[in-house]
Computed example of a mutant assay.
Amino acid sequence: MDLSQIKMVVSDMDGTLLNSNHEVSDRFFELFEKLKARNIQFVAASGRQYHSMLSKLDHIKNDIIFIAENGALIKQKEDELSTTPLDQNLRAEILDSIQQIENVDAMLCGKYVTYFDRNSEQLLNLVKEYYSNYEVVDNFYDVTDEIVKVAAFHPKSAEEYIHPRLEHLEDRLKVKVSGKYWVDLNHIDAHKGNALKMVLDKFGLRPNEVVAFGDYNNDLEMLELVDYSFAMANAHPNVKEVAKYETASHNDFGVERILEKILA
């Protein structure tokens, strides 16, 4: 594994760069400054809302690129490099399908604001960590904002209880199990792989100049795109199958350990 030519590092957030307490380590920020000094670009790629990502990486925000909402929004400083909203008719079809599933709550994710149903206050209290900019509404169907993602939540298992009931949408949407409790539904072209491809084209980078880290199914296309793809030790089996390499867990500085190797 020759990491001497690396010019970009791309990392998922939850389960990857963030530990179980949803924290970015001081060790990462120290390593980031060394990467920056060597002109190695850092990209944060997450299913999270942009503002939620920003809150974790605020003091380096002007030096990095954000891929938010699974690739539906790409932002560098104040510039929107790309946005991929959902078709309104498909959005309504998603909501209709979700309403047929027991014990499932949903959220509508705009580019900068996430919408919660007034009857889902319990869900809001659970996920404020991930959605810092939000509004509570009476009816999802009345939301006029451009929506880039619908996220569905099950308190036991998204893979078991939600995904099988939404698989019929996969010919027209990206339907991804993005965590133990979550299924994300995006535009068919809105995924981390497409978003990263746009970023690589913008900077004129090749797959052998990029390292990427991930832990869940919404990272698969991104990991497939680059030569140096790392699954976290805590990653979903699908991710370990796709990634070319493995690193330590998110609680054991898995990302930082590889950054140190790049800098060495």
Rank of each mutant, 00 (worst) to 15 (best):
T83M: 13
L126Y: 02
A151H: 04
V150I: 15
Q99I: 07
D189I: 04
A151W: 05
V104N: 01
N119G: 12
D145E: 15
H168W: 11
E159N: 12
Y112D: 08
D145M: 03
S97I: 10
D189L: 15
T114I: 07
Y115E: 07
N125F: 05
E167W: 04
K176G: 03
T114L: 01
Y131E: 15
V175Q: 11
H154Y: 10
D96Y: 15
L81I: 15
K192W: 05
E80M: 11
N186G: 08
E93T: 09
P155D: 08
V175L: 13
M107Y: 07
Y161M: 07
R165C: 14
F116K: 06
D142C: 07
N133F: 09
L173S: 04
A158R: 06
R118V: 08
R118S: 10
L126V: 12
D105S: 13
M107T: 09
Q88W: 04
A151K: 14
V175D: 12
N194H: 10
F116A: 08
L185S: 06
I188P: 04
L108S: 03
L185P: 05
L108V: 09
L108K: 01
S157F: 05
L90D: 12
M107E: 12
I98Y: 02
Y115T: 11
S120C: 11
Y112I: 02
P85V: 00
N103Y: 14
T144L: 12
T84H: 00
H163E: 14
G179M: 12
Y141N: 07
I94C: 06
D142H: 10
A106Y: 08
V136S: 08
L126E: 13
I98V: 11
L173D: 06
I188H: 10
A92V: 10
K192Y: 12
R91G: 14
F153C: 14
S82R: 08
E170F: 08
L81N: 04
I101S: 06
H168T: 09
I94K: 02
S82C: 05
Q122C: 13
D145L: 00
Q88P: 14
R118F: 03
L90S: 12
E93M: 12
Y141F: 13
N125V: 03
Y130Q: 05
P164L: 02
P155Q: 08
I98R: 00
I101P: 04
R165S: 13
D145G: 04
Y161F: 14
E135H: 01
Y161S: 14
A152L: 14
K156V: 15
K176L: 08
E146L: 00
D184W: 01
R165N: 15
R165G: 14
V148S: 03
V136H: 08
L169T: 07
R165W: 11
Y181P: 08
V183Y: 06
I94M: 07
D96M: 10
D117T: 11
E93G: 11
F140Q: 00
L86N: 02
Y115D: 02
E160Q: 11
I162P: 00
E146S: 03
D142L: 14
L95A: 01
H187I: 02
V183E: 03
T144N: 14
V183P: 06
D87K: 10
F153W: 15
Y131Q: 10
C109Y: 00
H191N: 15
V183A: 01
L166D: 03
A92S: 15
